[in-house]
Write a protein that binds this DNA or RNA. Sequence first.
DNA 1: AGCAAACTGGACCGCAGGTACAGTACCTGT
DNA 2: ACAGGTACTGTACCTGCGGTCCAGTTTGCT
Lengths: 210, 210
Amino acid sequence: MANLDVPKKQQILEAAQAAILAKGFSATSIDELIAEVGISKSGFFYHFRDKTILARALLERYIEQDDVVFDRAFDEADALSEDPLHSFLIALKLLAKVFDDMPNGHPGCMVACICYHEQLFDQEVRNINAKAVLSWRTRFRKRIERIAERYEPRINIDLDDLADMFSVVGDGGIILSRVVGDKSLLPRQLLLYRDFVRLIFEPVQVSDKP
Amino acid sequence: MANLDVPKKQQILEAAQAAILAKGFSATSIDELIAEVGISKSGFFYHFRDKTILARALLERYIEQDDVVFDRAFDEADALSEDPLHSFLIALKLLAKVFDDMPNGHPGCMVACICYHEQLFDQEVRNINAKAVLSWRTRFRKRIERIAERYEPRINIDLDDLADMFSVVGDGGIILSRVVGDKSLLPRQLLLYRDFVRLIFEPVQVSDKP
DNA sequence: AGCAAACTGGACCGCAGGTACAGTACCTGT
DNA sequence: ACAGGTACTGTACCTGCGGTCCAGTTTGCT
């Protein structure tokens, strides 16, 4: 049934990511994962010393995949405009579209998921989590800095805060999307963040009105 | 040791809320709760048929407490200004201050916490969760509608989305605050949301610059 | 042939969530 | 005074899950 060429360890990670984001870490049992990928319990513990090691691997994997999505959107945007503000606005639109195109909505953020299970994990996992958020901050801050060099912001703003706000709106948007069962809520919120950036930096008076 | 006048049921809810927001639902054991409040296991199950009933009670309690905080901030703001925009901006500043004054930062949002443990609970709990988010939407939308009646928004904006954005920034801000270990992150994000509202509706050109 | 990586199988442990049920202390209305 | 409800205690027991231990097997590389 499962792909025979994919190593079992990858299959476990795959199955675990889906299950954990959908049901939560504790609600996902090892028994259920090994049944799904067709491996023995001993086989599972051969790859992962315990469940927290699985969580760590999952988190690292998630962050890598996330970075790929960001890189793609920013690269594509850069190809379409050399202006830092326009490129950033395009990237935000692309990112919103990526999430909008997901058939069942965003599967959930592993960082947020682990945040609400925190004490189950060791300091190492929490450090990875913090590092991921700070890397997002750096990524967005760089972009926003380049915008601020060219465009005078309309209000006084802390660039780190504005950079963090992307992650804040992302994680908060994922939660509200799920809770109210409206998958378009997350992309709409990201576009709202985009409007905010536009209002801060875009020099001419904006009017979308008819 | 514990307050003798407070009924045990209340004491359990108190202890459970703190533990669950700090460590997560599954990481909080019934044994640990009954040890803390000094009740027997049978006593616990007398009050709560099972752990999910405890979660339901906790969620309902949390939403009530949250509403009180909102009511207080909005009432106080209304007393300070009759203008819907100014009152709203004051309320947001007050709310940011409430969270900033919490010695250990915001303890975590029960709605978000339960969202990431979803499949552990029944439809009823998820309905309560959705109802809470929608009640926040309604609360903020009413305020924003009154603002939009008086002030022409600078950009085309969906009022429900802008109302939801408060909850989005709140829940996202709580997560990032915890992950990076910076308790001031949440209030700063709320003030950023406030800046957004101001940029949309405030008619005169704003300048905080020296 | 020999070795390592990737497993299988089975026995076993402790903890957490829960069930079942009998008993008790205290308060309240008739 | 006693009947009945509320708020518990104590004990025994069951299940599922995470986890350990360990001996043995298959597969592929050199």
